[in-house]
Amino acid sequence: MTTRLRLQELLGPILLVVAFSYAVGLQSAQGLLIVQSTLALFVMVLALHVFVGNSGVLSFGHGAFAMFGAFASGIVTTPSNIKEHSLQLQHLYPFLVNLNLGMYPSLVLAILAGAIVAGLSGLLLMRLNGLAAGIATFALLGVAYNIFFNNNRIGPGSQALLALPPFQFFEEPVVLTVIVMLAVYLFGISRAGRTLRATREDPLAAPALGISIMRVRWIAFTLSGAIAGLGGAMFAHVAGTVQVQDYYLPYTFMTLSMLIIGGGASLWGATVGTLLVTGIGQILLMMEQQKPILGIVVHLPNGTRAIVIALSLVVMLLWRSDGVTKGREFKLGMPKLRK
């Protein structure tokens, strides 16, 4: 009844993502890799936006859902003959050795894995607020890390799962990302999404209206877990490999930075943050590698990229905690970087 689709709020971010994908991805093999890995990270940022951005509750645990998604998709798409003969997979459960699915069924499995883990853990975690929630979700990430790192019955343990099939067509991750953007936007304007934002704005007033904070947070947490599962699987298929370390602290830090720098409360903020951090990160990486930028070579020491992103995060939290977009959705004529 009151759900109002503001087309430009959805089309603005989608057009930016599609334009970025085609402008960079069709340039070179390196450009294609940058686009595909950025889109996989962006899906994870969207997952964080659904929960963290809308509820205001910080989560360090979404890497766990990405981990479950990546390993679920990875293990069923790795060819059986490789699973049989790979040294790091010799202890795998036999049914996993023989289980083979195509790319898309495996992505559905990743979504389900993320949703189930988030749904079950959310039954407990959604009772927490503030610092307690942050620490508890971090503990969840630690638990997931240790499950995959130490258990070689369900994966390669501390080793890498190799030979994952890549996306066949350039458009596949682009289309998947656009579908996720649409789902995330529709959730944001749904009653559940608005209710969740209301609980962020005033958690004391919400129960007085008959709103169960735990219930709306749980719905968002589960949905974001599903999206994180997909993001993790996409990341795995882009890289062609899954290793538990890939979804741990740097991954969590990077995706949270993208969300916070862009502005966690909006789809536009998640989009701008991801592309901004990717763009700056790539420029700094080229400088670290002494590659010429517009014919000029600037040498920066290794690690500069991570330091700059970390400092940007601190600066944003200090002076513009709602991100460069101020948490607003895209609107034609809006000065995006206005102070």
Binding site: T2, R194, T195
Partner: peptide
């Protein structure tokens, strides 16, 4: 909820 519109505030009231 100051950040939401009037109608969004009213819609939240319908939850109960």
């Amino acid at each position: 909820f100051g950040g939401l519109s009037v109608i969004e505030n009213l819609t939240l009231g319908l939850t109960g």
